[in-house]
Computed example of a mutant assay.
Amino acid sequence: MSGVESLDLGYERDGFMRALIRELAGTLEEIVGVEEAAGYISLVSQRTGDAVNERYLKALAVDKIDREQIADVLVDLKRRIQGDFYVIEESDEKIVLGNRACPFGEEVRGRDSMCMLTSNMFGVIAAQNLGYAKVELRQTIARGAASCRVAVYLRTTEEAARAPGREYYGDLSETEPVGR
């Protein structure tokens, strides 16, 4: 052995995958722009969000995750992937979450499109179970903030209508109508 295996390169599987995703997001942002890159990442995270939702449904042995469990599921999901999300505010209309640590670590800085993973995961899980969600990324580590603030609107209220963000819809035929 030449001693190469003992070198500290700062790479292990997790770090390598975060770097790979950062470069993929950066390349997309450079080639097609931030908005289009966010769109591509949204497609991937939509599918991932559906799969994650199915895992929670199966593990909880329920057909739908109820409103009281949604915030717990969102926080738990991020905890499992080494984020540090917590609930700031919670009501029937919205959940506001804070985050002290991005699962992508420092690799997320300057890569706004990577935040579509959080938006879609939160939006898909909430909408698939409650019929509707709108996710507003109020502040993000990717944009240079020290922490994140994410609002997940659960109803189509006037406040939700004014908020910038992405809307998500579940199968409304199987849920109660969303309120205005």
Rank of each mutant, 00 (worst) to 15 (best):
V152G: 04
N99H: 02
R109T: 14
R166W: 08
M121N: 07
K94L: 09
L117N: 06
M121Q: 01
Q139L: 13
E106L: 06
N120G: 00
V108R: 08
L137W: 03
R155M: 05
C102N: 09
V152T: 09
M114F: 03
A160R: 05
M114A: 10
Q128L: 14
N120A: 07
D112A: 10
A160C: 03
V124F: 05
E93N: 06
E106G: 08
A126T: 15
V152H: 08
N129M: 06
G98M: 13
A163K: 05
K94A: 03
E106Q: 14
N129C: 10
G105L: 12
I141C: 06
V96P: 04
L137D: 02
G105F: 09
V96N: 00
E93G: 00
I141K: 14
R155D: 14
I95Y: 01
A101C: 02
L97P: 11
E136Y: 02
I95N: 00
R166H: 11
P103Q: 03
L97W: 09
L97T: 10
N129F: 13
D92R: 12
R155V: 06
T157S: 11
A163W: 04
M121E: 07
V96C: 06
L137M: 15
D92E: 14
T156L: 00
M121A: 14
G105H: 13
R143C: 05
V135N: 03
A133C: 12
T118E: 02
A146K: 15
R166N: 14
G105M: 06
F104L: 15
E106M: 05
L130E: 05
R138C: 03
E93M: 00
E93K: 04
R138K: 15
D112E: 14
E106D: 13
A160T: 01
F104T: 03
I95S: 00
S147M: 14
R149V: 15
N99V: 01
V124C: 10
C102I: 10
V108T: 13
T157Q: 03
A145Q: 07
